[in-house]
Amino acid sequence: MKSLRDLGSLSGLVYSTDAGRMCPGCRQPVAQCSCQSSQPAPAGDGIVRVSRETKGRGGKAVTLVRGVPVDAAALEQLGKQLKAACGSGGTVKDGVIEVQGDHVERVMAALQNQGYRVKRSGG
């Protein structure tokens, strides 16, 4: 059985209507997180993989970009650039950039222009 001191350390603010998501490590808003900058970029094989997926989206296509060797802030910025290049919406979730629509060729061309090694994955 856990002691009350252990349980007290688990509690904390997760979301605030003023600031949005809160970092569990430093308990600051994610945009102002001080411990996020110390996280290294994800390791991989250096190849960015672009695929098209429709699973769980009511048959609508989404272009997925995986394996980009940058940190979270740079990934958000790259996601913005790719969405603007395709003229559509999207998001960045769990290190994967999602661009709404079937824009595989356009995304691959944009990434190659920025110097990334890009491969098409999936069918």
Rank of each mutant, 00 (worst) to 15 (best):
I97E: 07
V30I: 11
C33V: 08
L82G: 07
Q100C: 10
A110H: 04
G58C: 08
I97Q: 04
T17I: 14
V92G: 05
A84P: 01
K119R: 07
Q81T: 15
M108A: 09
G20H: 10
Q28R: 12
G79H: 00
L10F: 01
C86T: 14
K2D: 01
D71R: 14
E53S: 15
S121Y: 06
M108H: 00
S11D: 02
T91A: 14
C35N: 06
R66Y: 10
A19I: 07
G8R: 13
K93P: 00
M1I: 00
A41Y: 08
Q100G: 10
T63Q: 07
R5P: 00
R57S: 12
D102T: 02
Q100M: 14
V65L: 09
K93C: 06
G90D: 09
R66F: 08
A110Q: 06
A84T: 11
C86W: 03
T63W: 01
L7Y: 06
M1L: 02
P69E: 11
G95L: 05
Q39R: 13
K119F: 00
V118D: 02
S121A: 15
A19Q: 12
L10H: 07
L4F: 01
T91C: 06
R21D: 13
A84F: 02
S16N: 06
G58H: 06
Q77E: 15
G20S: 12
T54Y: 01
G89F: 09
G12F: 06
E98Y: 14
L111H: 07
D71Q: 11
A31K: 10
R120E: 14
